[in-house]
Design a protein around this nucleic acid. Structure first.
Lengths: 216, 216
DNA sequence: GTTTGTGAAGGATTTCACAGCA
DNA sequence: TGCTGTGAAATCCTTCACAAAC
Protein backbone atom coordinates (compact mmCIF):
# COMPACT_ATOMS: atom_id res chain seq x y z
CA UNK A 1 0.00 0.00 0.00
CA UNK A 2 2.08 2.78 1.18
CA UNK A 3 2.76 5.59 -1.25
CA UNK A 4 1.74 5.37 -4.85
CA UNK A 5 2.68 7.91 -7.43
CA UNK A 6 0.99 7.73 -10.72
CA UNK A 7 2.77 8.26 -13.95
CA UNK A 8 1.74 8.29 -17.56
CA UNK A 9 -0.02 5.46 -19.23
CA UNK A 10 1.54 5.09 -22.60
CA UNK A 11 -1.34 2.97 -23.90
CA UNK A 12 -4.51 4.00 -25.60
CA UNK A 13 -6.98 4.38 -22.74
CA UNK A 14 -6.88 7.83 -21.19
CA UNK A 15 -7.41 8.76 -17.60
CA UNK A 16 -8.07 5.40 -16.06
CA UNK A 17 -8.40 5.66 -12.28
CA UNK A 18 -5.59 4.10 -10.33
CA UNK A 19 -8.03 1.88 -8.39
CA UNK A 20 -9.18 0.36 -11.63
CA UNK A 21 -5.63 -0.49 -12.65
CA UNK A 22 -5.10 -2.16 -9.32
CA UNK A 23 -8.13 -4.37 -9.84
CA UNK A 24 -7.18 -5.60 -13.29
CA UNK A 25 -4.63 -8.11 -11.97
CA UNK A 26 -7.37 -9.60 -9.80
CA UNK A 27 -9.45 -10.18 -12.91
CA UNK A 28 -6.51 -11.72 -14.68
CA UNK A 29 -5.89 -14.09 -11.82
CA UNK A 30 -9.51 -15.12 -11.52
CA UNK A 31 -9.75 -15.68 -15.27
CA UNK A 32 -6.64 -17.84 -15.22
CA UNK A 33 -8.22 -19.99 -12.55
CA UNK A 34 -11.48 -20.24 -14.47
CA UNK A 35 -9.64 -21.17 -17.63
CA UNK A 36 -8.11 -24.17 -15.90
CA UNK A 37 -11.32 -25.78 -14.78
CA UNK A 38 -14.54 -24.78 -16.37
CA UNK A 39 -16.47 -22.90 -18.96
CA UNK A 40 -15.25 -21.04 -22.00
CA UNK A 41 -17.43 -18.08 -21.19
CA UNK A 42 -17.92 -16.13 -17.99
CA UNK A 43 -20.38 -13.42 -17.01
CA UNK A 44 -19.61 -10.36 -14.93
CA UNK A 45 -21.98 -11.88 -12.38
CA UNK A 46 -19.86 -15.02 -12.04
CA UNK A 47 -16.61 -13.11 -11.94
CA UNK A 48 -18.05 -10.82 -9.31
CA UNK A 49 -19.12 -13.75 -7.20
CA UNK A 50 -15.63 -15.16 -7.34
CA UNK A 51 -13.98 -11.88 -6.42
CA UNK A 52 -16.65 -10.64 -4.03
CA UNK A 53 -17.44 -7.54 -5.96
CA UNK A 54 -20.37 -6.23 -7.95
CA UNK A 55 -20.84 -7.14 -11.61
CA UNK A 56 -21.46 -3.49 -12.39
CA UNK A 57 -18.04 -2.55 -11.13
CA UNK A 58 -16.37 -5.16 -13.25
CA UNK A 59 -18.21 -4.08 -16.37
CA UNK A 60 -17.45 -0.45 -15.70
CA UNK A 61 -13.78 -1.19 -15.12
CA UNK A 62 -13.51 -3.10 -18.37
CA UNK A 63 -15.35 -0.38 -20.25
CA UNK A 64 -12.38 1.95 -19.75
CA UNK A 65 -10.47 -0.19 -22.21
CA UNK A 66 -12.99 -1.35 -24.75
CA UNK A 67 -15.84 -3.75 -25.33
CA UNK A 68 -14.78 -7.27 -24.57
CA UNK A 69 -18.05 -9.10 -24.01
CA UNK A 70 -21.00 -10.34 -25.97
CA UNK A 71 -24.46 -9.31 -24.84
CA UNK A 72 -26.51 -12.20 -23.72
CA UNK A 73 -23.47 -14.46 -23.29
CA UNK A 74 -20.68 -12.87 -21.30
CA UNK A 75 -16.94 -12.79 -21.85
CA UNK A 76 -14.67 -15.33 -23.45
CA UNK A 77 -12.43 -16.39 -20.59
CA UNK A 78 -9.33 -16.88 -22.69
CA UNK A 79 -9.66 -13.77 -24.78
CA UNK A 80 -10.52 -11.47 -21.88
CA UNK A 81 -7.52 -12.77 -19.96
CA UNK A 82 -5.32 -12.18 -22.97
CA UNK A 83 -6.64 -8.67 -23.51
CA UNK A 84 -6.15 -7.71 -19.88
CA UNK A 85 -2.64 -9.12 -19.81
CA UNK A 86 -1.81 -7.08 -22.85
CA UNK A 87 -3.27 -3.91 -21.31
CA UNK A 88 -1.23 -4.42 -18.15
CA UNK A 89 1.94 -5.30 -20.02
CA UNK A 90 1.88 -8.85 -18.73
CA UNK A 91 2.26 -10.43 -22.15
CA UNK A 92 6.01 -10.08 -21.88
CA UNK A 93 8.68 -10.74 -19.25
CA UNK A 94 10.17 -8.05 -17.01
CA UNK A 95 13.67 -7.95 -15.63
CA UNK A 96 13.86 -6.97 -12.00
CA UNK A 97 16.54 -6.56 -9.36
CA UNK A 98 16.61 -6.85 -5.60
CA UNK A 99 18.53 -4.35 -3.49
CA UNK A 100 19.41 -5.48 0.02
CA UNK A 101 20.64 -9.03 0.52
CA UNK A 102 19.86 -9.49 4.17
CA UNK A 103 17.38 -12.01 5.47
CA UNK A 104 14.44 -10.45 3.66
CA UNK A 105 16.23 -9.94 0.36
CA UNK A 106 17.35 -13.55 0.35
CA UNK A 107 13.79 -14.69 0.96
CA UNK A 108 12.64 -12.53 -1.93
CA UNK A 109 15.19 -13.77 -4.47
CA UNK A 110 14.41 -17.35 -3.58
CA UNK A 111 10.64 -16.86 -3.65
CA UNK A 112 9.36 -19.06 -6.47
CA UNK A 113 6.28 -16.95 -7.21
CA UNK A 114 7.81 -14.24 -9.37
CA UNK A 115 9.27 -16.06 -12.35
CA UNK A 116 6.11 -17.94 -13.38
CA UNK A 117 4.38 -14.57 -13.65
CA UNK A 118 7.11 -13.18 -15.87
CA UNK A 119 9.08 -11.24 -13.28
CA UNK A 120 12.67 -12.38 -13.55
CA UNK A 121 15.13 -11.35 -10.89
CA UNK A 122 18.33 -10.84 -12.83
CA UNK A 123 20.49 -8.91 -10.37
CA UNK A 124 21.08 -8.59 -6.65
CA UNK A 125 22.78 -5.73 -4.81
CA UNK A 126 23.99 -4.89 -1.36
CA UNK A 127 25.78 -1.96 0.20
CA UNK A 128 27.84 -4.21 2.44
CA UNK A 129 31.17 -4.91 0.71
CA UNK A 130 31.77 -7.95 2.86
CA UNK A 131 28.99 -9.89 1.14
CA UNK A 132 29.51 -8.49 -2.35
CA UNK A 133 30.66 -11.40 -4.50
CA UNK A 134 28.67 -14.02 -2.64
CA UNK A 135 26.15 -16.00 -4.63
CA UNK A 136 22.50 -16.18 -3.63
CA UNK A 137 20.08 -18.34 -5.59
CA UNK A 138 22.41 -18.23 -8.53
CA UNK A 139 22.90 -14.45 -8.45
CA UNK A 140 26.17 -12.69 -7.73
CA UNK A 141 25.70 -10.03 -5.10
CA UNK A 142 26.92 -6.79 -6.67
CA UNK A 143 27.91 -3.48 -5.17
CA UNK A 144 25.29 -0.76 -5.36
CA UNK A 145 27.84 1.35 -7.19
CA UNK A 146 27.36 -1.01 -10.15
CA UNK A 147 23.62 -0.49 -10.14
CA UNK A 148 23.15 2.10 -12.87
CA UNK A 149 25.45 0.24 -15.22
CA UNK A 150 23.74 -3.10 -14.63
CA UNK A 151 20.28 -1.58 -15.07
CA UNK A 152 21.29 -0.50 -18.54
CA UNK A 153 23.13 -3.66 -19.50
CA UNK A 154 20.38 -6.00 -18.37
CA UNK A 155 17.46 -3.77 -19.28
CA UNK A 156 16.06 -3.83 -15.77
CA UNK A 157 12.77 -1.98 -15.34
CA UNK A 158 11.71 -2.79 -11.79
CA UNK A 159 13.51 -2.47 -8.47
CA UNK A 160 12.63 -4.43 -5.35
CA UNK A 161 13.90 -2.75 -2.20
CA UNK A 162 14.67 -4.94 0.80
CA UNK A 163 17.20 -2.80 2.65
CA UNK A 164 16.79 -1.69 6.27
CA UNK A 165 14.68 1.39 6.79
CA UNK A 166 17.71 3.60 7.45
CA UNK A 167 19.02 3.02 3.96
CA UNK A 168 15.74 2.83 2.11
CA UNK A 169 15.31 6.44 1.01
CA UNK A 170 18.87 6.66 -0.21
CA UNK A 171 18.59 3.41 -2.14
CA UNK A 172 15.32 4.52 -3.69
CA UNK A 173 16.98 7.78 -4.76
CA UNK A 174 19.67 5.70 -6.41
CA UNK A 175 17.07 3.68 -8.30
CA UNK A 176 15.32 6.82 -9.45
CA UNK A 177 18.62 8.27 -10.63
CA UNK A 178 19.24 5.09 -12.59
CA UNK A 179 15.97 5.66 -14.42
CA UNK A 180 13.82 3.09 -12.64
CA UNK A 181 10.13 3.98 -12.73
CA UNK A 182 8.60 1.09 -10.78
CA UNK A 183 9.62 0.21 -7.24
CA UNK A 184 8.37 -2.48 -4.93
CA UNK A 185 9.29 -1.34 -1.45
CA UNK A 186 9.54 -3.72 1.50
CA UNK A 187 10.98 -1.11 3.86
CA UNK A 188 8.51 0.28 6.40
CA UNK A 189 8.65 3.85 5.17
CA UNK A 190 6.77 6.13 2.80
CA UNK A 191 9.54 7.19 0.46
CA UNK A 192 9.65 10.42 -1.44
CA UNK A 193 9.90 9.96 -5.19
CA UNK A 194 9.40 12.32 -8.10
CA UNK A 195 6.28 12.28 -10.22
CA UNK A 196 6.34 9.58 -12.80
CA UNK A 197 7.74 6.99 -10.44
CA UNK A 198 5.38 4.39 -8.99
CA UNK A 199 6.08 2.87 -5.59
CA UNK A 200 4.09 0.07 -4.04
CA UNK A 201 4.74 -0.91 -0.45
CA UNK A 202 4.63 -4.40 0.98
CA UNK A 203 4.12 -3.99 4.67
CA UNK A 204 2.48 -6.71 6.72
CA UNK A 205 2.80 -4.73 9.95
CA UNK A 206 0.82 -1.85 8.48
CA UNK A 207 -1.89 -4.30 7.44
CA UNK A 208 -2.05 -5.79 10.91
CA UNK A 209 -2.14 -2.37 12.51
CA UNK A 210 -5.25 -1.36 10.63
CA UNK A 211 -7.05 -4.64 11.24
CA UNK A 212 -6.81 -4.34 14.99
CA UNK A 213 -9.12 -1.34 14.80
CA UNK A 214 -12.00 -3.65 14.01
CA UNK A 215 -11.37 -6.07 16.84
CA UNK A 216 -10.39 -3.73 19.66
CA UNK B 1 -5.08 -4.85 -1.42
CA UNK B 2 -6.86 -8.04 -1.99
CA UNK B 3 -10.21 -8.45 -0.36
CA UNK B 4 -11.21 -6.44 2.64
CA UNK B 5 -14.36 -6.97 4.55
CA UNK B 6 -15.31 -4.41 7.06
CA UNK B 7 -16.77 -5.29 10.37
CA UNK B 8 -18.04 -3.30 13.29
CA UNK B 9 -15.91 -0.81 15.09
CA UNK B 10 -16.55 -1.34 18.71
CA UNK B 11 -15.11 2.05 19.64
CA UNK B 12 -16.77 5.41 19.92
CA UNK B 13 -16.35 6.91 16.46
CA UNK B 14 -19.07 5.88 14.06
CA UNK B 15 -18.85 5.33 10.35
CA UNK B 16 -15.19 5.99 9.78
CA UNK B 17 -14.24 5.24 6.19
CA UNK B 18 -12.02 2.24 5.71
CA UNK B 19 -9.42 4.33 3.85
CA UNK B 20 -9.05 6.54 6.89
CA UNK B 21 -8.42 3.56 9.14
CA UNK B 22 -5.76 2.36 6.77
CA UNK B 23 -3.96 5.69 6.96
CA UNK B 24 -3.85 5.90 10.73
CA UNK B 25 -0.94 3.45 11.01
CA UNK B 26 1.02 5.67 8.64
CA UNK B 27 0.49 8.57 11.00
CA UNK B 28 1.54 6.47 13.96
CA UNK B 29 4.71 5.43 12.20
CA UNK B 30 5.63 8.95 11.14
CA UNK B 31 4.97 10.26 14.64
CA UNK B 32 7.18 7.58 16.15
CA UNK B 33 9.98 8.64 13.85
CA UNK B 34 9.48 12.30 14.68
CA UNK B 35 9.46 11.54 18.38
CA UNK B 36 12.92 10.02 18.11
CA UNK B 37 14.64 12.99 16.58
CA UNK B 38 13.00 16.35 16.75
CA UNK B 39 10.34 18.62 18.02
CA UNK B 40 7.70 18.06 20.63
CA UNK B 41 5.05 19.50 18.40
CA UNK B 42 4.17 18.84 14.79
CA UNK B 43 1.78 20.55 12.39
CA UNK B 44 -0.43 18.84 9.86
CA UNK B 45 1.68 20.62 7.27
CA UNK B 46 4.88 18.95 8.49
CA UNK B 47 3.26 15.54 8.82
CA UNK B 48 1.84 15.92 5.34
CA UNK B 49 5.23 16.74 3.94
CA UNK B 50 6.68 13.64 5.50
CA UNK B 51 3.94 11.38 4.21
CA UNK B 52 3.39 13.08 0.88
CA UNK B 53 -0.20 13.96 1.53
CA UNK B 54 -2.20 17.12 2.09
CA UNK B 55 -2.50 18.68 5.55
CA UNK B 56 -6.24 18.98 5.04
CA UNK B 57 -6.57 15.24 4.63
CA UNK B 58 -4.67 14.58 7.81
CA UNK B 59 -6.78 17.03 9.79
CA UNK B 60 -9.99 15.63 8.36
CA UNK B 61 -8.92 12.07 9.14
CA UNK B 62 -8.12 12.98 12.73
CA UNK B 63 -11.39 14.86 13.09
CA UNK B 64 -13.28 11.57 12.87
CA UNK B 65 -11.95 10.71 16.30
CA UNK B 66 -11.76 13.97 18.17
CA UNK B 67 -9.79 17.16 18.55
CA UNK B 68 -6.17 16.43 19.18
CA UNK B 69 -4.40 19.64 18.19
CA UNK B 70 -3.98 23.16 19.44
CA UNK B 71 -4.73 26.01 17.08
CA UNK B 72 -1.71 28.07 16.25
CA UNK B 73 0.67 25.35 17.45
CA UNK B 74 -0.08 21.92 16.03
CA UNK B 75 -0.15 18.50 17.63
CA UNK B 76 1.86 17.13 20.52
CA UNK B 77 3.85 14.36 18.87
CA UNK B 78 3.79 12.04 21.87
CA UNK B 79 0.17 12.50 22.77
CA UNK B 80 -1.14 12.22 19.22
CA UNK B 81 0.83 9.03 18.76
CA UNK B 82 -0.57 7.66 21.98
CA UNK B 83 -4.14 8.59 21.07
CA UNK B 84 -3.88 7.02 17.64
CA UNK B 85 -2.38 3.85 19.06
CA UNK B 86 -5.23 3.61 21.46
CA UNK B 87 -7.81 4.13 18.71
CA UNK B 88 -6.24 1.39 16.61
CA UNK B 89 -5.85 -0.97 19.54
CA UNK B 90 -2.07 -0.78 19.38
CA UNK B 91 -1.64 0.04 23.04
CA UNK B 92 -1.70 -3.65 23.85
CA UNK B 93 -0.12 -6.82 22.49
CA UNK B 94 -1.89 -9.23 20.14
CA UNK B 95 -1.39 -12.94 19.93
CA UNK B 96 -1.15 -14.27 16.41
CA UNK B 97 -0.60 -17.61 14.73
CA UNK B 98 0.86 -18.69 11.42
CA UNK B 99 -0.76 -21.45 9.40
CA UNK B 100 1.46 -23.12 6.82
CA UNK B 101 5.04 -23.91 7.75
CA UNK B 102 6.59 -24.14 4.32
CA UNK B 103 9.24 -21.78 3.10
CA UNK B 104 7.06 -18.71 3.38
CA UNK B 105 5.64 -19.55 6.79
CA UNK B 106 9.12 -20.10 8.16
CA UNK B 107 10.21 -16.74 6.83
CA UNK B 108 7.21 -15.13 8.49
CA UNK B 109 7.71 -16.68 11.93
CA UNK B 110 11.34 -15.69 11.90
CA UNK B 111 10.68 -12.15 10.67
CA UNK B 112 11.81 -9.86 13.46
CA UNK B 113 9.45 -7.00 12.60
CA UNK B 114 6.26 -8.24 14.25
CA UNK B 115 7.12 -8.55 17.92
CA UNK B 116 8.42 -5.00 18.43
CA UNK B 117 5.07 -3.75 17.19
CA UNK B 118 3.16 -5.92 19.63
CA UNK B 119 2.25 -8.78 17.33
CA UNK B 120 3.42 -11.95 19.00
CA UNK B 121 3.40 -15.17 17.05
CA UNK B 122 2.46 -17.75 19.65
CA UNK B 123 1.51 -20.75 17.55
CA UNK B 124 2.39 -22.40 14.25
CA UNK B 125 0.33 -24.92 12.30
CA UNK B 126 0.67 -27.16 9.31
CA UNK B 127 -1.53 -29.71 7.59
CA UNK B 128 1.40 -31.99 6.84
CA UNK B 129 1.69 -34.55 9.66
CA UNK B 130 5.28 -35.30 8.75
CA UNK B 131 6.44 -31.91 10.01
CA UNK B 132 4.05 -31.62 12.94
CA UNK B 133 6.19 -31.72 16.06
CA UNK B 134 9.15 -29.96 14.50
CA UNK B 135 10.28 -26.74 16.09
CA UNK B 136 10.59 -23.51 14.10
CA UNK B 137 11.92 -20.37 15.75
CA UNK B 138 11.00 -21.80 19.13
CA UNK B 139 7.48 -22.79 18.12
CA UNK B 140 6.18 -26.35 17.96
CA UNK B 141 4.44 -27.01 14.69
CA UNK B 142 0.96 -28.19 15.56
CA UNK B 143 -1.66 -30.01 13.57
CA UNK B 144 -4.44 -27.84 12.18
CA UNK B 145 -6.89 -30.05 14.04
CA UNK B 146 -5.58 -28.42 17.23
CA UNK B 147 -6.26 -24.96 15.91
CA UNK B 148 -9.58 -24.10 17.51
CA UNK B 149 -8.46 -25.37 20.89
CA UNK B 150 -5.18 -23.43 20.75
CA UNK B 151 -6.93 -20.24 19.64
CA UNK B 152 -9.01 -20.40 22.80
CA UNK B 153 -6.22 -21.42 25.15
CA UNK B 154 -3.78 -18.82 23.94
CA UNK B 155 -6.31 -16.09 23.22
CA UNK B 156 -5.23 -15.73 19.61
CA UNK B 157 -7.01 -13.00 17.70
CA UNK B 158 -5.17 -12.87 14.38
CA UNK B 159 -4.35 -15.55 11.83
CA UNK B 160 -1.56 -15.32 9.29
CA UNK B 161 -2.11 -17.63 6.35
CA UNK B 162 0.96 -18.89 4.48
CA UNK B 163 -0.37 -22.10 2.98
CA UNK B 164 -0.33 -22.89 -0.75
CA UNK B 165 -3.19 -21.47 -2.75
CA UNK B 166 -4.92 -24.85 -3.05
CA UNK B 167 -5.41 -25.03 0.69
CA UNK B 168 -5.97 -21.37 1.42
CA UNK B 169 -9.75 -21.14 1.27
CA UNK B 170 -10.18 -24.23 3.40
CA UNK B 171 -7.70 -22.96 6.00
CA UNK B 172 -9.40 -19.58 6.08
CA UNK B 173 -12.73 -21.30 6.64
CA UNK B 174 -11.15 -23.12 9.57
CA UNK B 175 -9.95 -19.82 11.03
CA UNK B 176 -13.37 -18.27 10.65
CA UNK B 177 -14.97 -21.29 12.33
CA UNK B 178 -12.53 -20.89 15.19
CA UNK B 179 -13.80 -17.34 15.70
CA UNK B 180 -10.90 -15.44 14.12
CA UNK B 181 -11.96 -12.03 12.82
CA UNK B 182 -8.67 -10.73 11.39
CA UNK B 183 -6.68 -12.56 8.77
CA UNK B 184 -3.47 -11.63 7.04
CA UNK B 185 -3.43 -13.65 3.84
CA UNK B 186 -0.23 -14.37 1.92
CA UNK B 187 -1.91 -16.78 -0.51
CA UNK B 188 -2.56 -15.35 -3.97
CA UNK B 189 -6.31 -15.62 -3.82
CA UNK B 190 -9.30 -13.48 -2.88
CA UNK B 191 -10.92 -15.61 -0.22
CA UNK B 192 -14.59 -15.63 0.63
CA UNK B 193 -15.27 -14.75 4.23
CA UNK B 194 -18.46 -13.81 6.06
CA UNK B 195 -19.23 -10.23 7.00
CA UNK B 196 -17.48 -9.18 10.13
CA UNK B 197 -14.22 -10.82 9.15
CA UNK B 198 -11.41 -8.64 7.83
CA UNK B 199 -8.86 -10.03 5.41
CA UNK B 200 -5.82 -8.17 4.18
CA UNK B 201 -3.74 -9.67 1.44
CA UNK B 202 0.01 -9.47 1.09
CA UNK B 203 0.74 -10.07 -2.53
CA UNK B 204 3.87 -8.73 -4.16
CA UNK B 205 3.00 -10.21 -7.55
CA UNK B 206 -0.28 -8.31 -7.63
CA UNK B 207 1.59 -5.11 -6.86
CA UNK B 208 4.07 -5.74 -9.64
CA UNK B 209 1.31 -6.60 -12.07
CA UNK B 210 -0.38 -3.26 -11.62
CA UNK B 211 2.86 -1.26 -11.85
CA UNK B 212 3.73 -2.62 -15.26
CA UNK B 213 0.71 -0.81 -16.66
CA UNK B 214 2.52 2.48 -16.21
CA UNK B 215 5.73 1.41 -17.89
CA UNK B 216 4.41 -0.63 -20.79
C1' DG C 1 0.67 35.36 13.43
C1' DT C 2 -0.18 30.48 13.14
C1' DT C 3 -2.64 26.33 12.77
C1' DT C 4 -6.62 23.62 13.98
C1' DG C 5 -11.34 21.78 13.04
C1' DT C 6 -15.00 21.64 9.90
C1' DG C 7 -19.02 22.80 6.94
C1' DA C 8 -19.44 23.24 2.14
C1' DA C 9 -17.75 22.44 -2.49
C1' DG C 10 -15.70 19.76 -5.60
C1' DG C 11 -14.07 15.55 -7.54
C1' DA C 12 -13.83 10.61 -7.88
C1' DT C 13 -15.77 6.17 -7.67
C1' DT C 14 -19.52 3.05 -7.33
C1' DT C 15 -24.04 1.63 -8.22
C1' DC C 16 -28.29 1.90 -10.72
C1' DA C 17 -31.12 0.91 -14.36
C1' DC C 18 -32.04 0.28 -18.91
C1' DA C 19 -31.30 0.51 -24.07
C1' DG C 20 -29.31 -2.42 -27.24
C1' DC C 21 -27.55 -6.50 -28.96
C1' DA C 22 -26.94 -11.67 -29.45
C1' DT D 1 -34.30 -14.25 -22.81
C1' DG D 2 -29.75 -12.98 -20.89
C1' DC D 3 -26.17 -10.13 -20.38
C1' DT D 4 -23.20 -6.26 -21.82
C1' DG D 5 -22.02 -1.35 -22.05
C1' DT D 6 -23.00 3.02 -20.28
C1' DG D 7 -25.17 7.53 -19.16
C1' DA D 8 -27.15 9.23 -14.96
C1' DA D 9 -27.70 9.07 -9.98
C1' DA D 10 -25.94 8.16 -5.77
C1' DT D 11 -22.37 7.68 -2.69
C1' DC D 12 -17.93 8.29 -1.02
C1' DC D 13 -13.70 10.85 -0.39
C1' DT D 14 -10.74 14.91 -0.78
C1' DT D 15 -9.86 19.63 -0.90
C1' DC D 16 -11.12 24.31 0.05
C1' DA D 17 -11.48 28.11 2.79
C1' DC D 18 -12.39 30.35 6.90
C1' DA D 19 -14.03 31.05 11.80
C1' DA D 20 -12.25 30.02 16.12
C1' DA D 21 -8.50 29.23 19.30
C1' DC D 22 -4.04 29.78 20.95
Amino acid sequence: MSSTNISNNSGSAPNVPEVVIQRLPLYVRALTQFAGSGDDVISSEQLGQRLQMTPAQIRKDLSYFGRFGKQGRGYSVASLEQRLRSILGLDRAWNTMVIGMGRLGRAVVSYPGFAPEGFNIVAAFDADDSIVGETVSGLDIQSISDLAKTVKEKDIKIGIVTVPIERAQEVIDTLVDAGIKSILNYAPLSPKVPEGVTVRGIDPVLSLQSMTYYIS
